[in-house]
Design a protein around this nucleic acid. Structure first.
Lengths: 151, 151
DNA sequence: GTAATTTCTAAACCTAACTTTAGGTCAAGG
DNA sequence: CCTTGACCTAAAGTTAGGTTTAGAAATTAC
């Protein structure tokens, strides 16, 4: 009953909709830091609900967990974050999102050009120049539509 | 020299910028189908450069390999695809991309609202309602910002 | 006080999209 | 002919983001 006892992991899971295993995983990745009770069980602050929610939102925005950890490090460590604090780090998300949208719109315009000319094949095609490294995580250099002039 | 001998996998790799291993992998996933020469080595048509380029572009758009295979199945099987053929399947990509952009813009607007009010915490926050299932691939139900009224 | 839940850790497993490795074959140049 | 480089297959390894499992300890419910 005492307020100061904190939330058990299961309660936090129910509050956020996350799986218990996911919450433990986030801890392992340094995204959240509960304390332990006498019996060794994790206990969370109510503010951690907000923290996990933020993590989920940031994931929808396409941030990786390390990136999210980085963003969260912008919160004060010595006290419970205020709405202002959350506001501050949310602005960073906003610009990240803006970039992703710009990239996709550029990609779309390029595709439109290619659909327009029916080419889909050449150095002169804008798609040829993928300066959009946002998505690359598994491979080396790739240049698109390398259909050189010859034959 | 004979045109009909086709490209070896290494040549195709150099043309597209893909790794040889990736091209073999795409074959295993049913995205490309080379023939074999007398010695059992893969040989590709020049049109396959375009096919691989298309795959890379579609990936940038966020399609999975099975989805790309599906899109590619819209190409004629009996002849080399014409620009018209590519144009046709590219239009499907375009609408996929439109959806992703819409989703992200909606997300951005919602975030703006939350930054505006500094809330980032509640059922009344639009972010609370993640009908954006586009990105979910690893988890069960998650509801955001489930910070219920109490306390 | 005991039974049923929760929670704990560590380690294994999962998917996507590949890469790397190992051990051997094919092809091209001199 | 023989060496070198490209290619072959199958299987295991990799990263991200988790989930599942197993066996044990802590809590909660009755």
């Amino acid at each position: 009953m005492a307020v100061s006892e904190g939330l058990a992991i299961g309660a936090l899971a129910r509050r956020t909709g996350l799986a218990v295993s996911a919450i433990r995983y986030y801890e392992a990745q340094g995204l959240i830091a509960p304390w332990r009770n006498a019996g060794g069980q994790r206990r969370y602050q109510r503010a951690d609900i907000r923290r996990l929610s933020f993590i989920m939102i940031a994931q929808q925005f396409g941030l990786t967990l390390p990136e999210i950890r980085e963003v969260l490090s912008g919160l004060p460590g010595n006290r419970t974050p205020t709405p202002k604090d959350w506001q501050k780090i949310s602005i960073g998300l906003r610009s990240h999102l803006d970039q992703r949208i710009d990239t996709l719109m550029r990609l779309r315009d390029n595709l439109d050009g290619c659909i327009g000319c029916g080419c889909l094949s050449l150095p002169k095609c804008a798609l040829y120049n993928p300066d959009d490294r946002a998505k690359s995580h598994g491979s080396g250099p790739r240049y698109l539509m390398g259909d050189t002039p010859e034959a």
